[in-house]
Amino acid sequence: MLHEWLYLGIFLTVALAIPAAALIIAGILAPKKPNPIKNSTYECGMETVGVSWVQFKVQYYIYGLVFLVFDVEAVLLYPWAVAYNKVPLYGVLEAVLFVLILASGLIYVWRKGALEWV
């Protein structure tokens, strides 16, 4: 078990190191001739107007919330799915109830109109 995590840890390190190394090598190879015009923000090609910060609408937050709830739900169901072959029929029905309770939440959000992208 620990060996597997050791491999994953090493793999993650290597996966981070390879692109980082490539970027550093390219940084050494590449020419460096900055000037103020070149270094100005490109944005959309025109001169930049205003601050780079935009206030986002609440819609993003709502989608994030619904996503979070369903993510937690699915994660709680994964142990059940692993044990699926061993659980009796009422165990499956319990999971069905679990999902249905949350599905009613989805219906509420839908009726409320919070799923519309406006």
């Binding site: 709502i62 919330l65 619904v66 709830v69 739900e73 949350l102 939440g105 509420y108």
Partner: peptide, 19 residues
């Protein structure tokens, strides 16, 4: 099962407030 109800409450409450 109660976790499910809790999540439902969180969802409804949050949507209510945000909306």
């Amino acid at each position: 099962e109660i976790t499910s109800v809790l999540l439902l409450a969180a969802l409804i409450g949050a949507i209510y407030i945000a909306y």
